[in-house]
């Protein structure tokens, strides 16, 4: 057994970046305040000191420039890892990500395949209002040519980030900032990867299946624990990768439980939950005991004062589960 240490998600991500920069000399980090300062969430702390200003670069304040420069760096043989300070600020870069990064491999007949990892903290629960709370994953899942990955705890964070860094495809890596520090766990100190595009059963159960990703995974586990108190046996799946996604694991589970609730923070309409229920229903339809259901954010901008009403909570998940089980 290799050595491991208890750490939070920031520490785990920092380790992944450190190990990768050490191993792959073409890897570079580019982003706002990521260098000397180590990032506003400190995920890149110490890396500029260790790898120098040429490889860990403070960018001018321009996301389109960061993403576009990264595409060019990748075309030129580097492996850029960019940080978009908050997922809400990825939108100025959307043209470079959606029209360039995502389509380069396809449109060039795979002559060029720029590989960029876009790390970005996302999600609510930090009193961040409209622009420090959004979960914009659906935009990117809806863009063929990108992988979309979400860690839900420190172990997954390190392993998934290293896998994303090794992966030849562009990856949008959404980091759940609300649990950056709150999520604590044992993480091996060595280099390891957690495979992309597979889902993880975090808890086994027979009565219903909860599917979530990122910061909603611990909330679903909490809901499952509450449900246990009421005599329900809930399965919880961490989807981890949304594009491509492991529908097979979800289908196997729902075939057994007959019930599915997908939970996410992003607005419900056209959120990834819509895809998931549509994507599995063909297979699971004959086994269903209740309608496939989603619990997402409301179809509103992310609020400030009334934030607690907006975020799916363990208690609301339980409310939905009860209805599905009594259906």
């Amino acid at each position: 057994m290799s050595e491991s240490k208890s750490m939070n998600m920031i520490g785990a991500l920092n380790q992944a970046l450190d190990l990768y920069l050490e191993r792959e000399t073409n890897a570079v980090i580019l982003g706002e305040d990521v260098g000397h300062f180590g990032g506003v969430f400190r995920v890149t702390a110490g890396l500029q000191e260790k790898y120098g200003v040429e490889r860990v670069m403070d960018a001018p304040l321009a996301e389109a420039g960061i993403a576009g420069m990264a595409v060019g760096m990748a075309l030129g043989g580097l492996e850029p890892i960019i940080e978009i300070q908050f997922a809400d600020f990825i939108f100025p870069a959307i043209d470079q990500i959606v029209n360039e990064l995502a389509k380069y491999r396809y449109r060039s007949g795979a002559q060029y395949a720029p590989k960029v990892v876009v790390r970005t903290p996302y999600g609510g629960g930090i009193r961040g209002g409209h622009y420090h709370s959004q979960s914009p994953e659906a935009h990117f899942v809806h863009t063929p040519g990108l992988r979309v990955v979400f860690p839900s705890n420190p172990y997954m964070a390190k392993g998934l980030l290293l896998a994303a860094l090794e992966c030849p495809d562009p990856v949008i890596f959404f980091e759940p900032k609300r649990i950056y520090r709150a999520s604590q766990g044992d993480v091996p100190l060595e280099y390891y990867t957690v495979p992309l595009d597979r889902a993880w059963t975090m808890r086994h159960g027979e009565d219903a299946t909860l599917v979530a990703w990122g910061a909603m995974v611990p909330i679903c586990l909490e809901a499952a624990a509450l449900a246990e108190g009421e005599g329900y046996d809930i399965e919880v799946i961490d989807l981890a990768s949304l594009a491509p996604y492991d529908s097979a694991t979800v289908e196997r589970s729902v075939t057994r439980t007959g019930r599915l609730l997908v939970v996410h923070e992003a607005p419900q309409t056209c959120g990834f939950g819509a895809e998931l229920v549509a994507g599995v229903q063909d297979v699971v339809f004959p086994y269903l005991e209740a309608p496939l259901r989603r619990l997402g954010g409301f179809d509103t901008p992310f609020p400030y004062t009334l934030e607690s009403h907006y975020m799916p909570s363990a208690d609301r998940i339980l409310f939905e589960l009860r209805e599905l089980i009594d259906y």
């Binding site: 809400d88 600020f89 100025p92 961040g128 209002g129 409209h130 622009y131 400030y304 009334l306």
Partner: peptide, 23 residues
């Protein structure tokens, strides 16, 4: 209506359009 973070003001009657975070 309490929708934005502190300092993201908007006061139409004083000709102050809404402040946004994306700079």
């Amino acid at each position: 209506k309490g929708r934005q973070m502190p300092i993201h003001f908007c006061f139409r009657d004083w000709a102050v359009p809404s402040i946004s975070s994306p700079v």
